[in-house]
Design a protein around this nucleic acid. Sequence first.
DNA 1: CGGGTCTGAC
Length: 508
Amino acid sequence: MCIQERRTPDNYTFSTLLKSSGDLKDLKTGEMIHCRIIQTGFISDTVLVNSLMGMYFKCESYYNIRKLFDEMPQRSTASWNMLISGYTVLGNFSFTEDIWELVKQMQIEGVKLDKFTVSSLLPLCGTKDNTGKLDYGREIHCFALKNDMYLGSLDLHVGCCLIDMYSKNKKITLGRLVFDGMSGRNIVAWTAMITGYVQNGCSEEALMLFREMQLRAGIEPNRVSLVSILPACSSLAGLREGKQIHGFAIRNEFNHEVSLSNALIDMYSKCGSLGSARCIFYDVIHSKDAISWSSMIAGYGLHGNGDEAISLYNKMIQLGIKPDNITLVGVLSACSRSGLVNEGFEIYNSAVTDYGVSLTVEICACMVDMLGRAGQLDQALEFINSMPMKPGPSVWGALFGASVIHENAEMRDLASSYLIQLEPENPSNYVSLSNLHASFGKWDVVAELRRGMKDKGLRKSPGCSWITISNEIHSFYVADKTHPCSSLIYEMLDDLISMMKGSHDFPD
DNA sequence: CGGGTCTGAC
């Protein structure tokens, strides 16, 4: 070996090393570099401390970010952004103060908020559980408008965050406005908009945009965009569209990704093709996750196959995959639909005590539905009274449905009064009650309910079902006689109804 | 020195 030249590392050396150890999530090496930075006296370099915080962020070591932030002599916008990023992962309550107080503090100290700050704050303005902070989101949007983020065109990252924020707050038209105002839209922007439509129940718009992206903008879908669009196919029962996407995924070798397989399992089972769903499920050999199992279990339940759902659930447990609250909803609704009350109760108890599944209002609704459908209305009410949280509309809705089936007027009226109290603006609550009274011939009650709805300006969009037969969509509404084959269809429907009534599995 | 879109539920 020749004589080695010993050089002192400078801030660029450290910065590069920190980036690498962060990307590798190598906390140990990162900490060693941190030591060297202290030893060499670089710890007063603001940019270098920001790099350190970035490394700790990537290594998920958030409390070190706070410590560095508190101890640094000079802070730049990037330092504040790092701290805010830590908050976005940990949530508001893990550090001592409120994040919005922090933003206020930032402004008091005269630190300029930049596009990074804005795109870290926007995701906090739209949570999935509807407790979004739309007002804050709008304010940040204004801030972005007034500052340099709209110079030339809206920064793509900021734009995507805005679309996402508006769609999580159920303001999809505002999201679309942002989308239309963005230039140089890339696949991420298109996918953010498509996802917004899907999450707001606008599946047709989502599919239209997905097509437009490919045909007009010439952008090839990637894995994420395929995963985003598949639920739109599921909710429209669009088997054709779903199969096309599956084909595209195979051609582009996305089909071995778990997330895509999971979305396909769900799509196939909701589009009536349980066999295809099962094929995908058994094809994902190595990397099945809780979502794969949950989707398949729910699929069996959806097709009335309660026993299969239960045995798959047991197999999942045996293999050591931890069920979560959504798995439990799937298996319990399968039990409910197949009348497997005892089995359902057993699963419920073991999930809560053995696997630590935390109770959600959806799980409770499943239990009420299961007990209620089986005619155990008193037990259902007892369950509601023992719930650890406030029973929501889904819970009372389940009790209402069961009381109607089992003709328990007292229970029905109790459930109905809660429903109307909880959701006075939901037309379905009045319509189902009105239809029920109509079936008894109590037209005065019907008239009163209808008048009440009219006074509130409530209208229910009529239920609709449809089927695609050789490229043509045939749709049907209540008492719809407009289809050319109408008389034939009703004839068959009558036959089916009498067959079902003749079966022992039906109560009437 | 830092950022964006993503699958399962009554």
